[in-house]
Computed example of a mutant assay.
Amino acid sequence: MSEGIPAILKDAEERMKKSVEVTRDEFSTIRTGRASSAMFEGITVDYYGAPTPLNQLASLQFPEARTIIVTPYDKGAMSNVETALRDSDLGVNPTNNGDNLRVVLPALTEERRKEYTKLARTKAEDGRIAIRGTRGNAKKAMEQLVKDKEIGEDEGVRGEKELDALTKKYSEIVDQALEAKEQELLTV
């Protein structure tokens, strides 16, 4: 094969791996029955007029599966952290004891589990779309090599077959991650 096709395939594979990583990261932000620090990554707090990520303003501890202790580093930010947690999409009402905030995650209802499953499927589809987009770009690059007569048509066809195999492989990885997340969500 020409020098160009292995480079195109290598680049496509790196991008597909990145798409899978991003999809898995997105899955980790979806709440299941257990508390995790990933659930709090998207929460920003109004700290002296600047939106600041929660994890930069407070420490998080998980003494129990559905309980989180949020301890702000600056006690003056306590009410802002409390407001940010209350207004987040976690559906929680933190309890302020003066030194820290206790957040108890409500048990997931069947309806909420189904909503989260739909959300997981949407995120998985976004991952598959990114993988297919990478495939499309790599295919165009290979077609350009054939058009510019840098490689023969047979080499181009072989390269596309390898690209299709990569696309299938990484799409299946996303599907497996989705299946695992759905299983986690539906386990009561």
Rank of each mutant, 00 (worst) to 15 (best):
M1D: 03
E3V: 06
E3A: 14
P6D: 12
I8Q: 07
I8D: 03
L9D: 08
A12S: 13
A12Q: 13
E13P: 02
E13L: 03
R15N: 11
R15P: 03
K17D: 12
K17T: 10
S19Y: 02
V20K: 07
V20H: 09
E21D: 15
R24F: 01
S28T: 09
S28W: 00
T29P: 08
I30Y: 08
T32F: 04
A35C: 04
S37F: 05
E41V: 00
G42L: 03
I43L: 02
I43M: 02
T44L: 03
V45W: 01
Y47V: 03
Y48R: 14
G49E: 06
T52A: 11
P53C: 10
L54D: 01
Q56K: 10
Q56T: 01
A58Y: 02
S59N: 11
L60E: 12
L60V: 04
Q61I: 00
Q61A: 15
F62A: 13
P63R: 02
P63G: 11
R66D: 07
T67F: 02
T67L: 14
T67S: 10
P72K: 00
P72S: 01
K75Y: 02
G76L: 04
A77Q: 11
M78Q: 10
M78A: 10
S79Q: 15
N80D: 15
E82M: 07
E82D: 03
T83G: 12
A84V: 04
D87T: 14
D89L: 07
D89H: 05
V92D: 12
V92C: 09
N93P: 04
N93Q: 13
G98H: 09
D99L: 12
N100A: 14
L101M: 10
V104N: 15
V104Q: 14
V104W: 01
V104G: 04
L105H: 05
L105C: 09
P106S: 10
P106T: 03
L108E: 02
T109G: 07
E110A: 08
R112M: 09
R113K: 09
R113W: 08
E115D: 12
E115G: 05
L119A: 10
L119Q: 15
T122L: 12
K123C: 08
K123F: 11
A124I: 07
A124M: 10
D126N: 15
I129V: 15
A130P: 13
A130C: 12
G133M: 05
T134A: 15
R135G: 01
A138D: 06
M142T: 14
E143A: 07
Q144M: 11
L145S: 13
K147M: 05
D148H: 12
K149G: 09
E150N: 03
I151C: 06
G152A: 04
D154A: 06
D154T: 01
E155P: 07
G156Y: 00
G156V: 02
E160P: 08
E162G: 09
L163W: 06
D164S: 08
L166P: 03
L166C: 05
T167W: 00
T167H: 00
T167F: 00
K169G: 01
K169Y: 04
S171H: 01
I173K: 14
V174R: 02
D175Y: 00
Q176F: 09
A177L: 05
L178C: 11
K181G: 12
K181Y: 13
K181L: 11
E182G: 05
E184I: 07
E184D: 15
E184A: 11
L185K: 02
L186P: 00
V188A: 14
V188C: 03
